[in-house]
Design a protein around this nucleic acid. Structure first.
Lengths: 230, 230
DNA sequence: ACAAAAGTGTTGTCTGTACACCCATGC
DNA sequence: GCATGGGTGTACAGACAACACTTTTGT
């Protein structure tokens, strides 16, 4: 790909993508970090990232990077923004586009995780991070909170079937605050976007609690009207 | 600035910024476009944009571009996101960061506007735009609507002193829907972030209507609690 | 029988919304 | 005196928040 005359004279930049990968272990919201294997900041905790290539869109680059670490395709992913301070990376002028991603924490590839020295951290116990990655993480968390209040993306963090308690735990973890069980149940069921299964989860209690699944079709019908989840 | 060894091998990109500049004429929400003077798409309507230079941050580049067209400094500005499709610009691989900006429509420099062939368009009468600029505009409008519902940035679009009617017209223009005058007045005054002046605007009616000014100090006190404007 | 989590209703408060009339003034 | 926009209050409905006890079942 070459640029035409008028574009020739301008500066060119290294472009990176950095991914904030969120997961949920049933109790805490977690984010995935890797031990950096590049100078500068070798050995420090960092977001998973990579450089954008000429033959791919920025979004494709983010999807590629996500796949590289998790082995997963079709991950839910959302752009957070561009981080373009001159000195953000002491290794050179790199402009980075941050994305956040939501995965079912049970799905990632153990092998790949080990290969990359990756580790999950609870969202309130984040280690020191390189460059401006802390800023990216905080912005990602904010965006997640906003988004999850009006869109059914929380389900991306859960297994296919889940109990109402698990769903409530998830929202509590994302917002860092407790919710009333009765109010939560009433509200989420009133949306009619969950289907109750006959099957019960017997792990969490003697009585057992019913599994639910998210019904995308029912949701689509509501979507236009602007659903409030929380 | 040079990159260290590990960064060397990666592709480099032209980086642009594109600015959606919003204004308000008392009746309609407007956006500013220029007649493009570069190939490709010479002579078509386009957002004001420019290339990022090595010695400036992406944000600084946006501020520079905004100043170039309006003559203004310290413009309210917010990043919308990165547009990085491979073929978004037929002139070459250019990744663009879009920003929206809010200005008091009375403030811009006529001279600079003419120099750049710039023109205001009502938000519901937007001409065909080059590249993905329409997408940028739509996203900008959405973000503006979201932001203005919870943050006092609408005032950036108004003169220092304004009437409640003007403020209501602004919100109506941003949302493209009508509001009830009594409910609007009650709500906005209940926030106690406006100071009523003694002076009246006599332009719009025989009776005249009181001017108000936004009180940033009072707002700052509320901010933490999360204000809802609309 | 008991421990542990699941499941379920009611009430008061607040917020949002719908709606109509008098006021002040310049002409 | 009349036309024009400015300014103001009330009542109803829906949403939200607070709150505690019974059910099931494995041990």
């Amino acid at each position: 790909m070459t640029s035409i005359e008028q574009y020739k004279d301008h500066d060119r930049f290294l472009l990176a993508v950095d991914c904030i990968i969120f997961g949920f272990d049933g109790k805490n919201l977690k984010a995935l970090f890797i031990k950096r294997r590049l100078e500068p900041e070798f050995g420090k905790w960092s977001l998973m990232g990579g450089f954008v290539n000429h033959n791919e869109s920025v979004e494709q680059a983010a999807a590629r990077v996500l796949n590289l670490l998790t082995g997963l395709d079709n991950i839910y992913m959302e752009q957070i923004g561009c981080f373009g301070d001159v000195d953000r990376d002491p290794g050179g002028r790199v402009v980075s586009i941050a994305y956040f991603a939501l995965i079912n924490i049970a799905d990632y590839s153990e092998t790949l995780m080990k290969e990359h020295n990756a580790k999950w951290f609870s969202i309130d116990k984040i280690p020191a991070l390189v460059f401006d990655h802390k800023k990216m993480l905080l912005l990602a968390k904010e965006r997640l909170q906003q988004k999850v209040a009006n869109h059914p993306i929380g389900f991306e963090l859960l297994p296919e079937k889940f109990t109402l308690r698990q769903l409530q735990n998830l929202y509590e973890a994302i917002y860092g605050s407790e919710l009333d069980k009765r109010n939560f149940t009433r509200k989420i069921l009133s949306l009619s976007i969950l289907n109750k299964l006959e099957e019960k989860d017997k792990e969490s209690s003697r009585k057992g609690s019913f599994y639910f699944v998210f019904d995308e079709k029912k949701y689509k019908k509501l979507e236009a009207e602007g659903v409030k989840f929380i």
